[in-house]
Design a protein around this nucleic acid. Sequence first.
DNA 1: ATCATAAATGCAACAAACTTGCAAACAATT
DNA 2: AATTGTTTGCAAGTTTGTTGCATTTATGAT
Lengths: 154, 154
Amino acid sequence: MKEEYCDASETIKQSGLARTPQRMAVLEALILAIHPLSAADILALTAEKTKINRVTVYRILASFRDRGIIREIETGHANSSYEMACAHNPVHPHFRCRDCGRIICLPPLTLSQAWDWLAQPADFTVERIDVQLIGLCAECIKKDNGNTVASDNF
Amino acid sequence: MKEEYCDASETIKQSGLARTPQRMAVLEALILAIHPLSAADILALTAEKTKINRVTVYRILASFRDRGIIREIETGHANSSYEMACAHNPVHPHFRCRDCGRIICLPPLTLSQAWDWLAQPADFTVERIDVQLIGLCAECIKKDNGNTVASDNF
DNA sequence: ATCATAAATGCAACAAACTTGCAAACAATT
DNA sequence: AATTGTTTGCAAGTTTGTTGCATTTATGAT
Ligand SMILES: [Mn+2]
Ligand SMILES: [Mn+2]
Ligand SMILES: [Zn+2]
Ligand SMILES: [Zn+2]
């Protein structure tokens, strides 16, 4: 899926965040990853390279995600995975195993192509296709309006 | 979305499960619901009608889901919602508010129609579209083969 | 209607993933 | 090198869902 690599140091510098060993380790793990990684995966990988705490991993992932550096792939039942959101890795659908939770990146796909998989099982079997549009509901737009408008004025 | 109603009593009878007051209350809540309901929603609604425990709600939801009576809508970060999976309520995509977690049922939709929403905000704004194919991965098919084949022999 | 039995429920304890508060350590700037 | 705001680590907390086991209940047979 991903064929080229970002520079971790450069990406962090451009984000305005401090370039700490912990952030470098997390980002390098994600840049080199073939599959999306869970917070636990990332903790295990980074702990080999630097002193790092579980909570720090969560905080780093949240800050990268909020800046659009990485994407969070939500997998139900509280066990997100993360992948790079750089130009080398455009948005794409995922396969998720209902048994082991494994996440596999899929190529871009129309819904009817996806539905075809239901009938013609390949390597894996597809039982269900979930489509979710995620954003802000009408109520939360109203509620957040004060904040949003204020910062939009600059 | 849903315009007709199932009969709770009949649905439970056909499932082979015992018709307990708790199961009746859970199913009636889901049949009458306009939006998908969380386990907490269901506990609150059913507790008004019968003595019921939090754990019982989870167990009833799992048994209905496993029999295809209801669908579980997974929402990241462990807070599923549930909706009827009867003929009156075919599979459809959902909108999810990233702020309040609200789930809204959407009409059937192609992906390109969904992407159009990103540009043309309506009542709610769409920031992201998640597509997940859910099933069994190659490894888990192999692993479960013993079980599956055994019971398939009957 | 009563009984026997398997199924379902309630309760307490547990578990996983994630969050929060706060003090100590550190990176970036001067 | 000193300053200052940012980041981290640690301990404790929260939320959501699960498990074990004793008690209760639904259901089918008498
Ligand atoms: Mn991916
Ligand atoms: Mn729905
Ligand atoms: Zn699997
Ligand atoms: Zn909302």
